[in-house]
Nucleic acid binder design. Structure first.
Lengths: 227, 227
DNA sequence: GTCTATAGGAAGATAGAC
DNA sequence: GTCTATCTTCCTATAGAC
């Protein structure tokens, strides 16, 4: 076992506690919003008293900012990873659909952190919001370029405003936490619907051939978590 | 001037103050969320002291519930009104697009109340949320029937799950307050993009003829407020 | 109808024992 | 590392004068 392995695999008890606090905060951010998330509730959920929380974090805002930060990064990294998994001959539209599906998946099941980051965006205090926008620069560029590639390839309806279309579709997936219920349909189903909807929305009347609207098997929406 | 006119036109001073309080609360709900909206801030925005607010409302929650209630009703009524304005030969897809555009318009400009109602949905306390769901029943049915009519008319991609598609698209328009900036594009532009996107998304590969994806002039996205 | 003053409680944060 | 006890601030809501 390498030293790096030891440091990463076996989380110290201290790291575990810290993580429980962040998990609790992410959960509460989703249910109560930014201002509704209380340190006392975080402590209760993490099975601690309030002062123990302040041993790990300087302030309430520091906890919440770290949650948002992690959530944004998880979403970005997952989208990048899924894009890299695509076969080299994937079309521009294939890449766009895979990106939205990867983002949606993170929001819905893999990460309460990502859902929290998306849902509290508009509620952050000014300074936190500014830092978040700064961090999100790379993601913003990535999404812009994905859509732009589709336009240049002639696969995206040229009558659509690219920015508005991108934001509408991101909104559609970010909002999904409000209504998605795993009991009413599997993750695979919802991801398939999302991909179909995104493909239709962006291709528009260009999607004349039957194959253009049907993703290939290689673009499976199923998420395979890393070991 | 009819007596009804007199009652509606000339709002009593008392009604005006009450309205200022609700306006302030709607604005704050959008910016701060449910838990972040303070009575003291409502009072300041309404140019009052806190006790004056409690002269008009029994509690903080009573103010916020009325805002949400009004917001939901405004959205519903506006969608119904716009549907009634459509020419009788409008297609099922025309009706769906007009409905989403009417909802988006309310969310973006005509009503801070509607935006507040949509954005705070997930943050309401259990009892308020239950009452809101009860009130939203009629709206839910209306949206379901709109999409269903499209499916039955063969104008909606049959491979889409109707419920998921409806919720994704409502999410897309509800989320628009997070990013839409009037300085970057007019209301007419954003409504046109939304209609195009909704039409594409739902029609999918069925939208093979050029006309199918181009709304007619009769379906102007411009909102004309009542006198 | 609107105000000043204030009760009563809950929240964020810290001191200091263990 | 985690706790009990406590400080300070801010919030909702009310009492009562004008």
């Amino acid at each position: 076992m390498t030293k790096a392995d030891g440091a990463q695999r076996r989380e110290r008890k201290s790291d575990k506690t810290r993580r429980r606090i962040l998990d609790a905060a992410a959960d509460l951010l989703n249910r109560k919003g930014f201002d509704g998330t209380r340190v006392s509730e975080i402590a209760t959920l993490a099975e601690l008293r309030v002062p123990a929380v302040y041993y790990y974090f300087d302030s309430r805002e520091a906890i919440l900012e770290e949650v948002v930060n992690i959530g944004d990064r998880l979403a970005h990294d997952n989208v990048v990873r899924r894009l890299n998994e695509l076969p080299p001959d994937a079309s521009a539209l294939d890449r766009i659909c895979a990106a939205f599906a990867a983002h949606l998946e993170m929001v819905l099941t893999e990460s309460a952190y990502t859902a929290a980051a998306m849902r509290t965006m508009g509620q952050l205090p000014a300074d936190m919001r500014a830092r978040q926008l700064e961090r999100q620069r790379a993601s913003g560029r990535m999404w812009r370029e994905l859509i732009q590639a589709g336009v240049e390839a002639g696969e995206v309806d040229p009558e659509l405003d690219p920015r508005a279309a991108r934001m509408f579709l991101l909104g559609a997936v970010n909002w999904a936490t409000e209504w998605w219920n795993p009991a009413r349909g599997s993750l695979e189903e919802i991801l398939a619907t999302a991909q179909r909807l995104v493909r239709n929305a962006l291709a528009g009347p260009l999607a004349r051939s039957a194959t253009a609207a049907t993703p290939r098997a290689a673009l499976s929406p199923v998420f395979i978590p890393p070991p």
